[in-house]
Design a protein around this nucleic acid. Structure first.
Lengths: 342, 342
DNA sequence: TTGAAAGCGCTACCAA
DNA sequence: TTGGTAGCGCTTTCAA
């Protein structure tokens, strides 16, 4: 384990000089620089992370995690928050603090203002589930330009220049759901789709991935109808019931977003034989219950815990070690869950 | 962020004393002790991990990872090794070194000797995929007694008193496979089982989990035969072929261990219609290929990467922070993989 | 352009 | 039973 001190001794310079070379700060005589670099990789120098994060502790890093305010009513986000809080505690033990903020959904102006305030209060980094609006993208670009790293979580936003996105690949999620549907129906089914909202990108992508995969690989599967539930369980219940009554031939249902419980209850109440095969997303408590009751065959999980924890981890690495995320798109894994591996 | 120094000031004692109290080293006046403890949790003291691991760096921790020597011929273990190497690199940046050892499979004496040598050479901790033999368990107990933490990976060993086990829950893996089989056959199938070896606990557990689940929940699924391939692809090819020829009624195959490629090729070569539904374990390259070709419907993944990385992480936490694993059994997740979410 | 030194929070050792 | 101090590897500041 080589250290800066060793390099300094070998090069016959001070530790400060070595530091300047290795971290490109301040000016150094090109001769010395070359010598130091050469020695550094000759002895395979790797900075000690514990020492690094101890030394920068004086900076008192503060990270903000901005979530939409509907998190409390959406059990999916419970797990995102749990992941974030867990990581926040870990980072606390390294001297970094995390604060949570909730900004009104569908109100880009409010989110922009919050970002602005945080920037002025000297926040060190930001994790955010952004409202998809150009004004938010612009504000994020400003933070980035001011040297404040930003990572998006759960939903991404274009042209924002954020460091990375941590979340689901919605299109692939749709394809995976299609694959599961193909397997459990042996390639023959009439599918009804219950989606969230046509104006939310993630939902439409999940529909697109599903239908495109079916069109390409499953000639025996027809999509016979699509309804929207606006992520509301009651609405979900009624539109699903209407859909099933209007299309008695439906023997499979694909639910792309929230409202799984409402749709599930509608399906259950009709009690069709043979039973309707249902595929949906996320592993919230009501969904677990419906899987156990045999109403839902499978659900696709998108690692909400990771969506909470990883953005904070990336910001920490960037701030204390100067390490950029390996990839711009850090997609969470698409886990297929059935009764037996819940 | 409270520090030891602050506590010392508030309590009117030295930092050394606070350290003694908080880490239970050396004797301290009960009065002082109470006072220090009280202040510590009044200001919610949490030790700084970076500082902790920097300070213990002088100890120059060395961890050994002992794997069976067949890892090189078993692609599943490539991922275990990859996970371990990745973590080893990370730990290197915190001043901890990791060395890999390969001990002959099915030779408990060799593994015992290796453990003994390492202990005498002053190893700090051991991660091991143990040979399941009482002599190995006994040696592990000795290391534990000597203060050397041991964590098992991939396979566990009874009565060894190791800190924790990181790996698959094989019984649950069998149940999950049964669940998948139930879904993709709509509950009607004649299943042939291709297992590894009746003398390897993991394999028999996967058979047990599968058959018990079928007996309890799937009246329409019959298990009509079981053959063993000894984890060899050629043997797997021939026994699978024989099984299918002896039982023309078989329309589903469950493979519990290695030899997936051989079995898959046998199934493929017979070209039955309707196609035989196949469920197996692990996501090695040949399995991926067979899934893409439509021969295998689904595979159950057991996070080999985690089996490599987590044991090292646990040992690091224990050695530098004195933190014990949260649980004794750290089961990896059972991920269902199909063509679309490989 | 460089060196010297203090300090991040914790551990460990020696002296009292 | 306690205090004082040096040191882990790195960053940062001040002076030269």
């Amino acid at each position: 384990m080589a250290t800066i001190k060793e390099i300094a001794t070998l090069a016959g310079v001070s530790r400060g000089t070595v530091d300047r070379v290795l971290n490109n700060r301040g000016a150094v005589n090109p001769q010395t620089e070359r010598k130091v670099r050469q020695i550094a990789d000759a002895i395979n120098y790797k900075p000690n992370k514990a020492a690094k994060s101890l030394a920068v502790r004086k900076k008192n890093y503060k990270i903000a995690f901005i979530l939409p305010d509907y998190v409390s009513s959406n059990p999916f986000f419970n797990d995102v928050v749990a992941g974030a809080e867990r990581k926040a505690r870990d980072l606390g033990e390294y001297g970094v603090s995390v604060e949570f903020y909730y900004s009104r959904f569908a109100d880009p102006a409010a989110q922009v203002e919050l970002l602005d305030t945080l920037a002025h209060e000297g926040i060190s980094g930001v994790a955010i589930a952004p409202v998809n609006h150009p004004s938010v993208a612009k504000k994020i670009r400003q933070l980035i330009a001011a040297g404040i790293p930003v990572v998006t979580s759960n939903t991404d936003i274009e042209n924002s220049n954020r460091l990375a996105y941590v979340g689901s690949n919605y299109y692939e999620g749709g394809r995976t759901a299609a694959g599961v549907m193909g397997l459990i129906t042996a390639g023959r089914a009439n599918v009804g789709i219950v989606s969230g909202s046509g104006s939310i990108l993630g939902h439409t992508e999940r529909v697109r991935g599903f239908t495109e995969h079916m069109a390409a690989h499953e000639p025996g599967i027809r999509i016979v109808g699509l309804v929207e539930n606006n992520d509301d369980d009651i609405e979900s219940y009624t539109v699903t019931k209407d859909l099933l009554e209007a299309h008695p031939e439906i023997d499979a249902i694909y639910i792309t977003a929230a409202g799984v419980y409402g749709a599930g209850r509608a399906i259950q109440s009709l009690g069709r034989t043979p039973p309707i095969r249902v595929v949906c997303f996320d592993t919230v408590p009501t969904t677990v219950r419906l899987i156990k009751e045999g109403v839902i065959a499978a659900t696709i999980d998108q690692q909400p815990f990771v969506q909470g924890s990883k953005p904070l981890g990336l910001l920490y690495e960037y701030l204390t070690m100067g390490v950029l995320p390996k990839k711009e798109y850090l997609y969470t894994e698409l886990g297929i869950r059935i009764r037996e591996n819940l």
